[in-house]
Amino acid sequence: MTEILVIGGGYTGVTAAIRVARRTRSTGARVTLVNASPRFTERLRLHQTAAGERLADHALTEVLAGSGVAFVLGRVAAIDPVQRQVRLDAGRTLGYDKLIYALGTMTDAGVPGVAEHAHVYDDHAAAVRLAQHLDTLAQGTVVVAGGGLTGVESAAELAEARPHLRVVLLTRGRPGSMMGQGARAYMDRVLERLGVEVRAGVHITKVLPDGVELDDGELIHSDATLWTTGTKGLPLAAESGLSVDERGRIVVDPVLRSVSHPDVYAVGDAAAVTQKFGVMHGTCQGGIPTGLGAADSLAATLRGRTPPPFRFGYVHQPVSLGRRDAVIQFTRPDDTPRRWYLTGRAAIAYKETVSSSPIITFKLLKRGLVPVWTFGLTAGPS
């Protein structure tokens, strides 16, 4: 019996586990998913959790029910790709024939003070801690560091949900710089309407217990600092001897196998996946297709077939701006903006469809179907 072990129960790990269990059922393979938490975290909604919204709680046992995937609760402490074993922090050791690494990334806390004083979105519990801290503030200032889509969504969400707090968005470049001019202008107007103070062109050199310090020496007071400026791979991959890039992501070949250890597949944010336009950046939009691609690649290999290379192209940049507004920038496959974008109610509906799609995707995958929003990368019945 082939033992397939999937480590990480986020969007990509669950996708890969359900898909590979379905695709390898006839081969007698056994699929096990390991995750440090019993719940499935909707990372696309962590800014809502941080703002204090109560969201649905999805137990991984319920998400995986009927898929044929066994679930093990535990945090991965070490990987031995030579002996093909994974050790959990409780001391338990799991062997594997094939491993799918889907542990994602962690916040890049390279700036002094981030690890000690900033709130991050590394997991659901971290977002809850931020919400609980904000509950204690009758007034005050929240600094959101980072003008990418996560920073913009967080600033808008917090400003709308907690109007008694001052929200300051600090960014080196222009917020939403990857979007087209029209979409950016709309986003700017909404942030202004929500009362978000945007300061672009600034560089934070230190996070303090009660503020942040800029490179020109200016101190900005903060009662809570949210850090969204970048991520990196977990040290676990490099410590295990897997080949990684400069950001700690596992370097994979065209069929998503580790270039150093071909029995290991890497997916989602944890993988450095090269396409014609360059290396993919971490998003749910690209993560779920890599989970499908790795599962199909692995299944083909077990059947003695040569898997086709993974291919992917971006479609959109969906951005929620609180609960009452949004903007959707449509893109070329290399993620550069097209002329078209959606705003207002249509964008709200579109964004909510995107945010809800993973749970629906899991249900369809268990039935052997691939929904159209995975862009047909591995379309067709199992």
Rank of each mutant, 00 (worst) to 15 (best):
G217Y: 08
V168I: 15
I220N: 14
R311V: 08
Y186W: 14
R54T: 15
V202I: 11
V167R: 05
T343C: 10
V273P: 10
R129T: 08
Y121H: 05
R332P: 01
T283K: 12
G28K: 06
A21M: 03
G173M: 09
T336A: 05
L165F: 06
V142S: 00
Q83H: 13
R324E: 13
T24D: 07
V143D: 01
H117I: 01
G217P: 03
V69H: 00
G182E: 02
A65F: 08
D216Q: 11
S297E: 10
Q48W: 13
H133A: 11
A56K: 14
T225D: 06
E218H: 10
A161S: 12
A77H: 00
V86W: 00
T15Q: 10
I220K: 08
D296F: 13
A224C: 07
A131L: 03
H261M: 10
T301G: 12
Y314N: 06
T229W: 02
Q275Y: 04
F310L: 06
V114N: 04
P209F: 08
I4W: 07
S357L: 05
H124A: 14
T306W: 10
A185H: 12
H281Q: 15
A300S: 13
V152N: 03
T301F: 10
I220Q: 10
V6P: 00
G52F: 12
K206E: 15
I18P: 03
L219C: 15
V20L: 12
A78V: 05
T374D: 11
S260T: 14
A272P: 07
S320R: 14
R25G: 09
R338N: 07
P209V: 11
D215T: 11
T141F: 02
E42M: 12
L64P: 07
G241Q: 02
A145D: 02
Y341D: 02
A65L: 12
L236V: 03
V142E: 01
I328T: 10
I100P: 03
V120R: 04
R129M: 01
G110N: 06
R19E: 15
M187N: 07
F71Q: 12
T171E: 08
V152M: 03
F362K: 03
A51P: 06
V372N: 09
G104M: 05
S320E: 10
L169D: 04
V128H: 05
L64W: 05
A346N: 11
Q329E: 01
T141D: 14
Q48L: 15
D216C: 06
P309A: 12
K98D: 14
L226K: 04
K98G: 04
Q329C: 03
A36Y: 02
L165R: 02
T336V: 06
I250Y: 00
M187F: 03
D335I: 04
D80I: 11
K232D: 08
E42R: 15
A90D: 15
V255Q: 09
G147P: 04
G110H: 04
L377E: 14
T331E: 00
S154D: 04
V143S: 01
S355G: 07
V142C: 04
R257Q: 14
G233Y: 01
